[in-house]
Amino acid sequence: MLPELFFGYYASAIVIFSLLVVTRSNPVHSVMWMLLLFFHIAGLYLFLNAEFIAAIQVIVYAGAILVLFLFVLLLLNLREELKVKKFVGSWPAGLFITAALLAIVLSAVKSFVPGPAGKYSVEFIKQETHTKALGKLLYTDYLFPFEIASLVLLVAIIGAIVLAKRKTGSK
């Protein structure tokens, strides 16, 4: 009973916060609701025995990405943002597409059959500790994707600087 209650609270909070994120007219309020949303998602990860993922959810999403969003909002003009309409004119079409997609996905979820279970049972992870098991897998079987991820980050660093740099001598 208690796990269901716990999941119910987190699920309803996550859905409500995501709705608030996409419907607030002030983008700063959206970012703040998103912060709460990310903390609740991290709580859900803890509930699923994924404590390392919960930690990087808080550090990377709530700590880094949202601060980046806030900084960019700081640079833009928010005064006129509060006066104009927040949705595009054809928003009912978007709502219809979304509802249809949701109906399709929910009807597909019902017929889902899980595959055979792997070797990382709760007892195995409890004995090995979660971060160690994850690190062993990441640095052996997934070493090459891990290196590619570092390349992606390098491209992002250089690309962000090149794109946001003010062109000198063009004006």
């Binding site: 993922i53 990087i56 997934y142 991820a149 992606v152 962000a160």
Partner: peptide, 27 residues
């Protein structure tokens, strides 16, 4: 639920790509 850590490895990569995407997109 499938007792397999590969899903969480994938989550780490998704978070990496999300960070890169946020930096580039905001630029």
């Amino acid at each position: 639920y499938l007792q397999d850590l590969r899903g969480q490895i994938l989550v780490i990569f998704i978070i990496t790509v999300a960070a890169a995407e946020a930096a580039i997109g905001l630029a």
